[in-house]
């Protein structure tokens, strides 16, 4: 359903993603972990067709992200790192706009808006200006936007950031319920979230995949924290060595 092969992305001299490969089966929820600057957002931007890769390929729902970008974009719901909102629009008119540009048939739009407003708990702010919403509500509208056309693949960049505890639980269970038919890739820094809802984990560090494993095989005995810290520490000795040499 989602297949990434030898993806590399350079920004000038900076290599943000190096030779990354991983895959997710249909209906799986994949947790995409890594420290700040590891390359999670970059990878997701490539998957959604926003950025081109320097080299490598990626397939979503059987379509190549580069050569069949339009097909891929039709099948993806994407919540970027910062919710892509127009401050001068109301929640409802914004969702209507997104539904239209996602190519939804006119007749289905109003029902879809009602559905995601309920799903993401937006009833109270449905006619408020997006520019006046609190961070958590902005995040929820961002999520509603990604879900509106009921896409088979969801790419969520830190979906629960800024939400209140109750909403975190709700959104988590929502994502959990989405699975089954939909493939979800979500990045997060909240490890318990991953152990609760993800079926597969990919950890990336300094642009390289350091771990790709099914959740069931992973957590036997060890906590996810230990696994995470261990995985991102593996690469560090040489990196630490280089930086201490430079300082010395």
């Amino acid at each position: 359903m989602l297949e990434v092969r030898n993806l590399t992305k350079r920004y000038g001299d900076i290599v943000a993603v190096r030779d990354v490969s991983f895959s997710a089966a249909q209906g799986q929820i994949l947790g995409f972990l890594g420290p700040n600057g590891a390359g999670k957002t970059t990878t997701m931007r490539i998957l959604t067709g926003f950025l081109p890769a320097t080299s490598g390929t990626a397939k979503v729902a059987g379509f190549d992200v580069f050569t069949e970008s339009a097909e891929v974009r039709r099948r993806i719901g994407y919540l970027p790192e910062s919710p892509p909102l127009y401050g001068e629009m109301t929640t409802e008119s914004y969702l209507r706009f997104v539904a239209r540009i996602k190519g939804m048939p006119k007749a289905a739009i109003e029902d879809a808006i009602e559905r995601v407003v309920k799903l993401c708990g937006l009833e109270a702010v449905h006619d408020r200006l997006l520019g006046h919403l609190s961070k958590g509500f902005r995040q929820r509208v961002g999520l509603a936007q990604a879900l509106i056309h009921d896409p088979p693949v969801l790419v969520l960049d830190e979906p629960t950031i800024g939400l209140d505890p109750r909403q975190i639980i709700e959104i988590r269970s929502l994502i959990g319920r989405l699975a089954g038919q939909r493939t979800v890739i979500l990045s997060t820094h909240i490890l318990p979230e991953v152990s609760q809802i993800c079926e597969k984990v990919v950890i990336i560090n300094e642009g390289r995949v350091v771990l790709e494993q099914d959740m069931a095989a992973l957590t036997r005995g060890q906590s996810l924290e230990d696994i995470f810290l261990h995985a991102i520490a593996k690469e560090s000795p040489e990196a630490a060595g280089v930086s201490s040499e430079q300082q010395g």
Binding site: R45, T48, P84, G87, I101, G103
Partner: peptide, 14 residues
Amino acid sequence: KAGTYELLLTSPLR
């Protein structure tokens, strides 16, 4: 600037 470019370019729009 606002990040909505990402929404436009990742939607099926030409």
